[in-house]
Design a protein around this nucleic acid. Structure first.
Lengths: 214, 214
DNA sequence: ATCCTAGGCTAACGATCGTTCGTATGTCAA
DNA sequence: TTGACATACGAACGATCGTTAGCCTAGGAT
């Protein structure tokens, strides 16, 4: 497992952080955390069970006392990532005032903060989904669809109410989603911008994209 | 090499297209094209030399008559991708009127069209850079820096001239870049939107993000 | 005191990896 | 006609892959 130069890495973040409550106890949790780091840095195919085990302080065979297969480890990570993302999006919308503009800001903020708070989880969730055995992917794809639908409905409602003026709804959705997705790749706490600042600015960008009347 | 369900794929496009003039003749070109498809679908680590060779209609060992190593194949693909991207960005800027707004539109259009015209190349160039041996990566990282700088300078010039009004230059740069990057993942010719339409709309989005006065 | 269990270990399985070697074949220049 | 070269091949190299089997040990419950 060779180290990759900083400028060449898939993401800038160093810390492997999992949502509170999502980390299992003991070795199971350690394995999950180290797998997260290696999958994020080198991809699912580029990280071996023995690599993960070594970082976790055990031998490769011992991993199978905690997970039935390498794919199960990836599946758990991606599930945690998507659940946390959807949970935040829904909570953000729920807490927002009904004005379309404030709803959009709330959802975009949640989207961005999820990617800044858990960059490694976001990178793995987005970039390694294709490596999941299809039977593991189905519930995750449904969750992803829900998150996307949530943002879409906010935009459509804003249009219907005449609060937004956007050339192409679908393209606006994709553009706003993309902005947030990439945050996971470049965000690091060493930056002179807090996640809050980024979320605020991106919320403003989203409003501009959909032509929100302030 | 198992097939991945459509909803789970890394990108929507099917055709492996390389820029005209960039495809070598004979087997060398066929190998490059099939490697592009497999690296895009499964990642560098997820595609083997024998997989590539089988699609190219030859045996694994024969690949080494054309490329000294698997890494050289990836390096050539990523080099082509970055060169095409930078070439288009620079050409777009060069052909644009000096008004900041038109410059921004031109550069964003080039950025988006590069990702829609060569989705597989873009996905590989962006998602597999970390798999390149560092000695191969250096010139490519420089090219990437140049493309980024080009967009940055357009935005900064617009601000200096008072044509743009953006909260955070760096974040605007990252957001606009991200929008275009993701196009490679979802664009497919089967869509009911042409690359031109997408490029136009995204150019408009970019102008809104930087608060361009029309 | 004894058993059970959880969680480590070493060793090994068959498969596949990137790559090398020696060889065969077909084409074209001398 | 000969020789050189480019391109293909089968076979095999050592390394590493995910995974399994069997064993050992510490700790808690009976």
């Amino acid at each position: 497992m060779s180290k990759v130069p900083a400028t060449q890495r898939r993401l800038a973040a160093i810390a492997t952080v999992l949502p509170p409550g999502a980390t299992p106890e003991g070795s199971r949790g350690v394995i999950l955390g180290e797998a997260l780091r290696l999958f994020a840095e080198h991809g699912y195919g580029g990280a071996s069970i023995r690599d993960i085990a070594k970082l976790a302080g055990i031998k490769g065979a011992s991993v199978y006392s905690h997970y039935p297969s390498k794919a199960h480890v990836l599946a758990e990570l991606i599930r945690i990532g998507h659940e946390e993302h959807f949970r935040r999006m829904r909570a953000g919308l729920l807490a927002a005032s009904p004005e379309p503009r404030l709803q959009l800001i709330a959802v975009v903020r949640a989207h961005v903060l999820a990617h800044a708070d858990y960059p490694m989880l976001a990178v793995v969730s987005n970039a390694e989904l294709h490596a999941l055995p299809p039977e593991f992917a189905a519930p995750i794809l449904e969750l992803r669809r829900q998150s996307e639908l949530l943002l879409l409905e906010v935009i459509q409602r804003g249009e219907t109410l005449g609060a937004f003026k956007v050339a192409d709804t679908q393209l606006a959705l994709l553009a706003i989603g993309a902005m947030g997705l990439r945050v996971a790749h470049w965000y690091t706490p060493e930056l002179d911008k807090t996640p809050e600042q980024i979320a605020d600015t991106y919320g403003d960008f989203a409003c501009r994209i959909v032509g929100a009347t302030n």
